[in-house]
Design a protein around this nucleic acid. Structure first.
Length: 293
DNA sequence: CACTTGACCTGTCCGC
DNA sequence: TGCGGACAGGTCAAGT
């Protein structure tokens, strides 16, 4: 589920909601919610204050003043939703979701020591693919995933030249598989792969070696465009995704191909978007402007 | 090494 | 209405 824009939206929300607050209690019932963590996670969490919430690729890092960090991956269906009655009481537009938490998808509950309202942060994850690892803050950069993950696509350093040199390491792959590869660049998932390839008029099954540099340059631009636009819209809610306040994202209302099968291509009103399979993933494209070469 | 496929889980939707 | 199978936004291990 959550790709870079969704994780970034959660990060922004959590920053304003939990930084500076102290964790009073933690409760979890699914052992895999804390893989590869100290046996007694409580010892490094209870009484610790949140100092920052950071993001790298699709990974969120909740830094604590105990010198440990809650490193979290939401995978397909994870949510981190903060419920503080002082902010979201009865009548708040989100109270329908807020009021039914915790629910049966809730894996971990963090309780904060904050005046009398007892605010909580729920880690919900229907499919149980997500996890939270409690890691000494200084060791976070050394986890295997961070050692091999590619560059952040929205930084100044991520130029078209950098993108092309990295994506060409997967010369024999389909372009869709290549940009989904987190070691090529960080943060792209199925939604923004389809959206950016439509923007660059590239068929997702095209081999990287067959794509002219000019088109790869265009794709680099489109990747940054769709990621920025989606952050502006608060991410995409296709099914489960909500932000830290339990709100849905609205990028899907602007999607040109993702989940738009059967609807007209924005460039060709008489051609319909189709859904097929590329790189073992559901793939949406316009059969007229994205030709396989 | 490059590349593809199956596994990890639960829930939902579609066809019979 | 019930049941089986396919499918869902991510990543890793194991296979070719």
């Amino acid at each position: 589920m959550p790709e870079l824009p969704e994780v970034e939206t959660v990060r922004t929300g959590l920053t304003s909601l939990i930084v500076g607050k102290t964790i009073k209690a933690v409760d979890f019932d699914w052992p895999k919610s804390f893989p590869n963590s100290p046996t007694d996670v409580n010892a490094f969490i209870i009484g610790a204050k949140v100092t920052a919430v950071k993001r790298r690729a699709k990974v969120l890092m909740i830094e604590l003043d105990s010198n440990y960090t809650l490193v979290t991956h939401l995978k397909m269906t994870g949510q981190l939703v903060y419920v503080g009655k002082e902010r979201f009481g009865a009548g708040h537009p989100n109270d329908s979701l807020i009021n039914r938490l915790p629910d049966k998808s809730t894996r971990v509950t963090f309780e904060f020591d904050d005046d009398s309202e007892n605010p909580k942060l729920y880690f919900n994850d229907q499919r149980k693919f997500g996890w939270i690892r409690l890691i000494p803050t200084l060791e976070v950069p050394n986890i295997d995933f961070f050692k091999k993950v590619g560059p952040e696509p929205l930084t100044d350093e991520f130029t078209a030249k950098v993108f092309i040199s990295r994506v060409e390491r997967r010369a024999n792959s389909t372009i869709k598989a290549a940009i989904l590869d987190q070691t090529v660049l960080a943060g792209i998932g199925n939604i923004y792969a389809d959206e950016s390839l439509w923007g660059a008029k590239i068929h997702p099954a095209t081999r990287v070696r067959d794509i002219p540099k000019l088109k790869l340059t265009k794709l680099h631009h489109e990747i940054r465009y769709v990621l920025n636009l989606s952050i502006e819209k608060g991410g995409s809610t296709d099914r489960n995704y909500v932000n830290a306040e339990g709100k849905r994202g609205s990028y899907i209302d602007f999607a040109r191909v993702f989940r738009q099968e059967g609807k007209p291509c924005p460039r060709h009103p008489d051609t319909l978007i189709i859904k097929t399979k590329v790189a073992s993933r559901g793939t949406h494209l316009c059969p007229r402007c994205q030709i396989l070469t």
